[in-house]
């Protein structure tokens, strides 16, 4: 096995030179937290005791974002937080891929400190790029798409202008959802182009959408994807999503 002399001289051992006894790991730009929910997480708490095994009493819904997010987050479980390439793969190689998840499950991979809810400070002015594709035809594709989505999120590949103006990407998290008839993959952003902002944010948002469609999912730029159970790659702000059918405007690429 060839090990570079310089690294060896400095006592740096990566996982490539010694998979069992490496002493450095590759830090990610941000730490990330994986969350999960499915029908079987409902009412589950850790550690599970007879007291918590019964579904919790519903909390009275008080107005306000925090209460709304709390209701939404009740059944979503934190799996793990990681901040290095090596830990990401350790997780990836020991967890269930989307194609093997139950029919109504979600993985949420978000930057540490951002909860996967519209109400979070980092998400409330944002939106999401998403695509929905039929389950039967795509069971063989969804794992690769989800892996590419995660890799380009943790590697900060979606948003090339991520240092302007703040030292962080527009991307806050990515989600894969399994449903009986389809899969959906989403990329959430911190900001959403509105009527009053510059063309710049719209362009930057579209760069993310195009990267998602072409580099992550592997479609051609002009390829039409909509069909039965399928959508185009489209962006909608969370504020417009909340209006539910009230005709929020979408960006379609």
């Amino acid at each position: 096995q060839e090990v570079d002399m310089e690294s060896q001289a400095q006592g740096i051992r990566t996982v490539f030179s010694n998979p069992k006894d490496f002493n450095v790991k590759h830090p990610l730009y941000s730490a990330w937290t994986l969350w999960f929910d499915s029908p079987s997480t409902k009412g589950r708490n850790l550690p599970q005791t007879p007291m918590t095994a019964v579904p919790p009493t519903p909390v009275p819904q008080t107005p306000g974002a925090a209460a709304a997010a709390q209701g939404w987050m009740e059944d979503i479980k934190q799996v793990i937080t990681f901040d290095s390439v090596e830990e990401f793969w350790g997780l990836y190689n020991n967890i269930v891929p989307p194609s093997q998840l139950p029919q109504r499950a979600n993985y949420y991979l978000f930057k540490e400190g951002i909860i996967p809810a519209w109400e979070d400070e980092a998400n409330k002015n944002g939106g999401k790029w998403s695509i929905q594709l039929p389950r039967e035809k795509n069971r063989g594709n969804v794992d690769k798409w989800w892996l590419n989505t995660m890799l380009d999120a943790i590697g900060e590949q979606f948003d090339p202008h991520f240092e302007e103006p703040a030292p962080h990407s527009l991307v806050t998290g990515v989600i894969v959802s399994t449903r009986p008839q389809f899969y959906r993959i989403s990329v959430w952003t911190r900001l959403a182009p509105g009527s009053d902002d510059t063309e710049k944010l719209r362009e930057r948002t579209e760069v993310i959408g195009k990267h998602f469609k072409m580099k992550v999912l592997g479609f051609a730029e002009a390829q039409k994807l909509a069909g039965p159970l399928a959508t185009e790659v489209e962006f909608i702000s969370h504020k417009d999503s909340e209006k539910k059918g009230k005709g929020g405007k979408k960006i379609v690429i």
Partner: peptide
Amino acid sequence: CVEKPDNLPNLEAIGL
């Protein structure tokens, strides 16, 4: 990197 992270919880316990 195939080793399970020490801090990965028991997945069955969260229904995963």
